[in-house]
């Protein structure tokens, strides 16, 4: 019991330390707006992959549609701002609702007809592409030209003149995403999602309404991604159909898988490492030889998946157990 408590304390201290580092990063980078944007981008992927963990990691549904929800959130919030001068602080919530509504519309028939595994993955993947075409052709809202958001430099319109506030907004979202994950993990829904993610039939037989559980997970994930989309639009200062990016949606799922399915901080870890490496490579060699950073990135990805299929978070778990606690060692002795 004492050991467990100590463990809790070390864990909280570690998290606190990380949070402090995260909070002071923009101060260190302060003068270099480009670096702040890079770090914010890394955080964005951290947020998305962490949220993906709800549907993909816990519920085991390989969702490849994250940028569909991001785009819907961005377009809702952005269009409201352009057309009606509506504050994005509210707009992003509405964006989340639109994204969640769309997810429900798609999710109900998908789960009703028991579309699973690769077919679910491909459907969600196709949705992103469908939305991209729809918004390109829907000239009233989208269209092929970027629509810029007005009111640069206004707090009310969430249009800051520096990237630093967006960084903190993204950090806030990340904390929410982690919190939601942590909370779900500890409650009935989390146990149910994990169970159905592993074996849907066994879950059904234990009294789990798998369809409604999956829908709950999907709505939770799409709503928060939609909210993120509102901030995303304001950060870039425009909305464009290219926000519906199939390739990047797949990347989010890959981060979730590589990080470690079902491990709360796994996707975040993968995002920090992989997106960090990618952005670093892009910044350092991208200009000279286009594509080279992607070659290196994809090789790293393949190697990680081949040698740590359970996720890179498990490396950290091993290290953590060795350094901070003796429980792991004792357990092995018992076995």
């Amino acid at each position: 019991m004492e050991q467990k408590k100590n463990n809790q304390v070390t864990k909280s201290l570690l998290w606190l330390l990380l949070l402090i580092i995260a909070v002071i990063i923009p101060w260190i980078l302060g003068s270099n707006q480009y670096s702040v944007l890079l770090v914010t981008t890394v955080l964005l992927y951290g947020v998305m992959a962490t949220l993906w963990n709800i549907i993909g990691g816990l519920a085991g549904q390989l969702d490849l549609g994250s940028f569909a929800y991001l785009g819907l959130g961005a377009f809702t919030s952005g269009t409201l701002l352009i057309r009606y001068n509506f504050t994005p602080w509210m707009g992003m919530i509405l964006g989340g609702l639109v994204a969640a509504g769309f997810a429900l519309l798609i999710g109900i028939p998908l789960f009703r007809f028991r579309i699973r595994e690769v077919w679910y993955a491909l459907t969600t993947c196709a949705l992103v592409e469908i939305l991209k075409v729809v918004f390109t052709m829907w000239e009233k809202v989208g269209g092929p030209v970027e629509r810029y958001l007005p009111h640069y430099g206004s707090l009310y319109h969430m249009r800051f003149s520096s990237y630093i506030p967006y960084y903190y907004l993204m950090l806030g979202l990340l904390l929410i995403a982690l919190g939601v994950n942590y909370r779900i993990n500890k409650t009935r829904l989390g146990y149910y999602l994990k169970a159905l993610g592993e074996d849907e039939i066994a879950a059904e037989v234990l009294g789990i309404d798998t369809r409604s559980c999956k829908l709950k997970a999907l709505v939770c994930y799409s709503f928060l991604i939609g909210v993120t989309g509102g901030i995303y639009a304001n950060m870039y200062g425009y909305i464009h159909p290219s926000f519906f990016d199939g390739q990047e949606s797949i990347k989010v799922a890959i981060l979730g898988i590589v990080g470690g399915r079902g491990i709360t901080y796994g996707p975040l870890l993968a995002a920090l490492l992989l997106v960090g490496i990618q952005e670093f490579l892009r910044a350092s060699i991208g200009g000279d030889v286009s594509g080279l950073y992607l070659v290196i990135y994809s090789v790293i990805l393949i190697v990680v998946v081949l040698f740590r299929p359970k996720g890179i978070a498990t490396i950290f778990q091993d290290v953590y157990q060795r350094v901070f606690s003796r429980r792991g060692v004792e357990k092995k002795n018992v076995q």
């Binding site: 039939i201 059904e204 037989v205 009294g207 789990i208 309404d209 798998t210």
Partner: peptide, 8 residues
């Protein structure tokens, strides 16, 4: 009836 309802 679906299995989860029967279990309940």
């Amino acid at each position: 009836m679906s299995p989860h309802k029967i279990c309940q």
